[in-house]
Amino acid sequence: MARTRPIMPAWFHRLGSPKGFYSMTTPWLPWLAAASLVLLIGGAVWGLGFAPADAKQGNSFRIIYIHVPSAFLALAGYYVMAVAGAIGLIWRMKLSFVAMKAAAPLGAALTLISLVTGALWGKPTWGTYWVWDARITSMLVLFFLYLGVIALHYAYTNGEAAGKAAAVLALVGTANIPIIYKSVDWWYTLHQPATIKLTEAPSMHPSMFQPLLVMIAGFYCLYALVLILNIRAEILHRERGSHWVVELARSRRS
């Protein structure tokens, strides 16, 4: 049988080792923090203070500047979690299970934000906080899937076994993501179809759409920042007995 040749570059292996990831991401943090701060504050001030009110909804439409970015990241973050889980199952990389565990509470928080902001917007717009339509129900299922992945991590004392079990649940749950995305097109729902489309121009006036893009970019930066911080915290916890973590703690104290 032919020997397998390395297909991944050296930096990938460095990123794959907990210590390598920790030292490599340290200089990224201030940049990511600055980018998220500038984009989120700029986008929020622009969207809440300067974008025009909607012709029909008035000012209540402005919740879109939180609702849509958090829903975007709740869906994208699920794929981050599931892909990390798949890499962990196949290549048994330590770091990928750590990344999967770190992505779960973050995704759950974003899903909850989009559900709550949607309910708050629904009351003045639709006339009700909640309706069991396909979009809202499948989003609630996504929230439970995230909670399931979190719960599985706490159900096992062995980190490796927890990672494997949570990864299988995360992979099975990927079936829900296209359902959430297409639910408003496949079924009759109360939730309106997508405003931002991949293939067409957005059905939103540019003066309202531009701040939304800034907020989405800001949420992506914040997501990356919090995910990396979560991974770093989990690395320190898992490697707390190792030499380099002890050294790091000692150098910080002095």
Binding site: A55, W126, G127, T128, T195
Partner: peptide
């Protein structure tokens, strides 16, 4: 017994709507 309004996916300022 209940009537809900369904909003469409279009967002525009009042001047543009006018």
């Amino acid at each position: 017994s209940e009537v809900l309004a369904k909003h469409d996916e279009n967002y525009m300022p009042p001047e543009v709507a006018d």
